[in-house]
Amino acid sequence: MSSRLAAKLAALWRLGFAEATAYRASVLVWVLATSLPLISLVLWRSIAEAGPIGDYDQGGFDSYFIAAFLVRQLSASWVVWDLDRQIRTGELSALLMRPVHPVLHHAVFNLSALPLRTLLAAPVGLAVLLATRGIVVADTALLLGLAIPAIMLAWALNFVTQLAIGCLAFWLTKAAALYDVWLGAYIVLAGYLVPTSLFPAGLAAVARVLPFHAALGFPVELLVGRLSVAEALAGLGLQLGWLALLGPIAAFAWRRGLRAYGAFGA
């Protein structure tokens, strides 16, 4: 990476971080809005009081959902809403006039808000940690190390999916509404409410190869030590595969979208 590009990324990062700080109240609302795994945690641990469900006992649920909350914060993206608004109102024009790719701008702004988001989520997570038996994580450095790229790829998957759907705003009035459909499937199939390994066998097999699981359930299971090294590598491969499929779709939608862009209201 050239030093010029690095300087530009750093400058975008600083501005993004400053913006996130200015919007800290709404960031906190986002954190609370994505605390669904903690509600699942309370539900499942009370169901598991009588005995383990599948291969999850109470402690297993505690670990899984605390990790799910954490991964959700670290992999969060909101580019679909930003893009939808910027395209509809013509705000995108300002980004298009800068010699930095608008997608890169969004990616860096997104990432620059994650530290603050994690910081604001920390007290919530800590309270849950103290109220439960805490989290048990993978016991080898290798598995923990693999969790890092898994979480990064989970973020990339969320970002690219949102980018592709957000680009539909070049043609549709409300593309963000379409993302709600994706989000509905994500909540059910990603392992957000229920670990996918507890699904009925046939459904589990399907759900575990879909991008939803790759964007949440997989890094969570890896983090709490439910996967072998071979399974972890297969999961990373699956994440890369989905990225290789969704990335070009998003790039295509962006390029075609710019041709259709009306820069209205601008």
């Binding site: 530009k8 400058a11 600083r14 501005l15 400053a18 913006e19 919007y23 800068r98």
Partner: peptide, 15 residues
Amino acid sequence: DLPALDSFELNRVIF
């Protein structure tokens, strides 16, 4: 929501 100086500084680097 930021001072204009922050945006000026961003442009210094990206331009």
